[in-house]
Computed example of a mutant assay.
Amino acid sequence: MNAVCFLDEQHQKRYQMILKRLSTRNRVKPPFQAILFLATGNLQLMQLFSDYFFPETGEFFYQEMLAESIDDRMIDVERQLLVQLYNGRTTVTVIEIIDQLSPTDLKLALGAIQVRMFGTDEEAGRRQT
């Protein structure tokens, strides 16, 4: 397992619970691991995300999620980051992440970026160089 730092034991349990619902093929893909890591670390984001992500099929209706009106700027930045980590279809700047996220959510975002790069399983998620 890549040295991923979950926020707490509950975060790790939520992550594992949803990860196990993914197909074996999707379970080892860093984009799926990253969005699950980010979404399961913030309960408000997870609630929004769960309306648009279907683990059993791997479908993520990100355009519909982005179209939903949100007043909380922190959740807005995190949902944009979700889509960025999933498929690169949005642009979130480093300054937006730094300025809009609390220290805990910044740690969560940085962890998700790490997961996207390296995955959580060293054998399955390792990038070929």
Rank of each mutant, 00 (worst) to 15 (best):
K13A: 13
R89D: 03
D99R: 15
G111E: 14
L106M: 13
C5T: 13
L81C: 05
F32W: 06
M74Q: 15
R79M: 14
E123G: 00
E78T: 03
P55C: 03
R79F: 13
P55G: 03
F6M: 05
I97R: 04
Y62P: 00
R73T: 15
F61L: 06
P31R: 01
A112S: 07
Q114C: 05
N87H: 01
L36K: 06
L22D: 11
I18R: 11
R127A: 10
R116G: 05
D71M: 06
L85H: 02
I35T: 06
F61V: 04
Q16V: 06
G88T: 08
D8H: 12
L19V: 11
I98W: 10
R14A: 11
Q16R: 13
F54Y: 10
I18A: 02
I113S: 05
L81K: 01
R21W: 12
M65L: 13
I97C: 06
Q80R: 07
L22E: 12
E78A: 05
L110K: 09
G41A: 02
F53R: 02
A39P: 10
F54W: 03
N42T: 09
D8F: 04
L108R: 13
Y62W: 15
I95H: 12
E64N: 09
F54L: 05
N87P: 02
L43E: 15
L101K: 06
T90N: 07
L81H: 02
A3I: 11
P103Q: 05
M17Y: 15
D8M: 08
L38H: 09
Q128W: 13
N87A: 02
L82Q: 02
L38D: 03
E122S: 10
G125I: 08
Q16E: 14
M117Y: 14
T104D: 10
E123Y: 12
V92R: 03
